[in-house]
Simulated scan of single mutants.
Amino acid sequence: MTHYEPHDDVTGNKMNWLRAGVLGANDGIVSTASLVVGVAGATTDKAQILVAGLAGLFAGALSMASGEYVSVSSQRDAERAVLAKERQELREMPEEELEELQKIYEQKGLDEATAKEVAKQLTAHDALAAHAEAELHIDPDELTNPWGAAIASFISFTIGALLPLAAIILSSATLRVPVTVVAAVLTLALTGFVSARLSGAPRQRAIIRNVVGGLIAMGVTYGIGALVGQSIG
Rank of each mutant, 00 (worst) to 15 (best):
G24R: 01
L98A: 08
I138D: 02
W147G: 08
G28P: 00
L90Q: 10
R197T: 15
T144H: 07
A166R: 00
L186M: 12
P94M: 08
Q230C: 03
T191P: 03
T187R: 00
L62I: 15
Y105F: 15
T144K: 12
G21K: 01
A61L: 09
L90K: 12
L190S: 05
K85E: 12
L18I: 09
N16H: 12
A61R: 04
L54S: 08
Q48C: 12
E86I: 01
L215D: 07
F154K: 01
S73I: 03
D8H: 13
L122Y: 03
V185R: 02
G24P: 01
A52Y: 06
A55S: 10
E68C: 07
V10N: 09
L110V: 13
G109L: 07
E112L: 12
T2A: 10
I138V: 12
H137F: 09
Y105T: 06
S156C: 10
I224V: 14
N210T: 08
I169M: 11
E142M: 11
A81C: 04
G38V: 13
S195Y: 03
P146N: 09
L170T: 13
G53E: 07
Y69T: 05
D27T: 14
E92Q: 14
M218D: 11
K14G: 04
Q75A: 10
I151G: 13
I104N: 04
L163A: 06
V194N: 00
A132P: 02
F157S: 00
W147E: 08
A152F: 05
T187W: 04
S156L: 12
S153R: 00
K120E: 13
T191M: 10
R76L: 08
A150Y: 02
Q75N: 11
P178G: 09
V118H: 06
G56S: 03
S172K: 12
K103N: 15
W17G: 06
V211Q: 05
A183V: 09
A129E: 14
I104H: 07
Q121E: 14
V182M: 14
A150K: 03
A129I: 07
L54H: 03
S171R: 09
Q107P: 02
F193N: 02
K85W: 06
A47G: 11
W17Q: 14
S195D: 05
S73K: 12
A161V: 03
E100W: 05
R203T: 13
D8W: 11
L62C: 15
D111H: 13
A134G: 05
V182Q: 05
V177D: 02
E95C: 01
V37L: 06
R80T: 11
E79V: 04
L83Q: 04
Q75Y: 04
